[in-house]
Simulated scan of single mutants.
Amino acid sequence: MTNLMTYPTELLLLLFVIITFLQSALDKIMDWKGNLAWLKEHFSKTPFKNMVPMLLGTVLVTEIVAGLLCSIGFYQLLAAGEGSIAFVGAILACLALLMLLLGQRIAKDYDGARTIAIYFVPAIFLVFLLQS
């Protein structure tokens, strides 16, 4: 209970990242074909047009690993006050968001890019709070 009162902001932000990335990864897994079809159209006029399946897989793996590391880090921070795994998960979450941002910018989807930027703010703040 002590760590809950010591690290409330970090724990809440970790929950935000966990929910965001594990739900996004689950959506990609459950509707791979739908996501792939939409993204192929989205990137049809970009240099990424022939790499969509590989890029989607890369984002999926990054989201899963970020979500899992943040989940483990949440437990460690809560149980022992140790935030190193959460820190790595938060950095990976930021890298995933930067990948998504690059894609939206390349596709000239500026509204989509703005949405990614909104998610980036709490993720980078989490990195700031967890750095030793």
Rank of each mutant, 00 (worst) to 15 (best):
residue 107 A to D: 08
residue 76 Q to H: 06
residue 45 K to A: 15
residue 85 I to W: 00
residue 101 L to C: 05
residue 83 G to D: 11
residue 12 L to C: 15
residue 3 N to F: 13
residue 5 M to V: 04
residue 63 E to K: 00
residue 103 G to D: 09
residue 61 V to E: 07
residue 86 A to P: 07
residue 88 V to C: 03
residue 120 F to H: 06
residue 126 L to T: 09
residue 78 L to C: 06
residue 53 P to K: 03
residue 29 I to E: 15
residue 70 C to I: 00
residue 36 L to I: 04
residue 55 L to V: 13
residue 126 L to G: 12
residue 15 L to M: 13
residue 71 S to C: 11
residue 114 R to F: 11
residue 53 P to L: 08
residue 120 F to C: 08
residue 132 S to A: 13
residue 98 L to V: 14
residue 95 L to N: 09
residue 119 Y to P: 07
residue 99 M to D: 10
residue 1 M to K: 14
residue 55 L to I: 13
residue 1 M to F: 13
residue 32 W to E: 09
residue 13 L to K: 12
residue 55 L to S: 06
residue 67 G to Q: 06
residue 34 G to A: 07
residue 128 F to C: 09
residue 113 A to M: 08
residue 91 I to K: 02
residue 105 R to M: 14
residue 76 Q to K: 13
residue 63 E to R: 01
residue 120 F to L: 14
residue 7 Y to D: 03
residue 123 A to K: 07
residue 95 L to C: 09
residue 29 I to H: 14
residue 28 K to D: 01
residue 128 F to A: 15
residue 1 M to V: 15
residue 43 F to S: 09
residue 131 Q to R: 08
residue 42 H to V: 06
residue 130 L to S: 03
residue 23 Q to G: 02
residue 47 P to V: 12
residue 3 N to G: 11
residue 97 L to N: 12
residue 17 V to W: 00
residue 42 H to K: 05
residue 88 V to M: 05
residue 113 A to Q: 03
residue 7 Y to P: 09
residue 111 D to P: 01
residue 14 L to T: 01
residue 132 S to M: 13
residue 78 L to Q: 13
residue 82 E to R: 12
residue 103 G to T: 01
residue 59 V to E: 05
residue 19 I to F: 09
residue 79 A to L: 02
residue 129 L to A: 04
residue 116 I to D: 07
residue 44 S to D: 12
residue 76 Q to C: 05
residue 107 A to S: 01
residue 119 Y to E: 00
residue 48 F to G: 04
residue 10 E to L: 04
residue 16 F to G: 07
residue 80 A to P: 05
residue 84 S to C: 00
residue 88 V to E: 06
residue 49 K to A: 08
residue 4 L to Y: 05
residue 52 V to G: 04
residue 131 Q to L: 10
residue 81 G to S: 11
residue 69 L to E: 00
residue 61 V to Q: 04
residue 35 N to D: 10
residue 39 L to D: 02
residue 124 I to Y: 07
residue 52 V to M: 10
residue 77 L to K: 04
residue 42 H to Q: 08
residue 31 D to R: 14
residue 103 G to I: 04
residue 67 G to V: 03
residue 5 M to N: 15
residue 4 L to G: 14
residue 67 G to A: 07
residue 75 Y to A: 05
residue 61 V to W: 09
residue 106 I to D: 10
residue 108 K to P: 00
residue 130 L to F: 12
residue 46 T to H: 12
residue 51 M to R: 12
residue 53 P to R: 08
residue 112 G to Q: 03
residue 94 C to N: 10
residue 108 K to T: 14
residue 51 M to N: 15
residue 90 A to K: 06
residue 33 K to Q: 09
residue 65 V to P: 02
residue 24 S to W: 03
residue 92 L to G: 08
residue 102 L to Q: 13
residue 9 T to A: 14
residue 77 L to G: 01
residue 45 K to P: 05
residue 87 F to H: 09
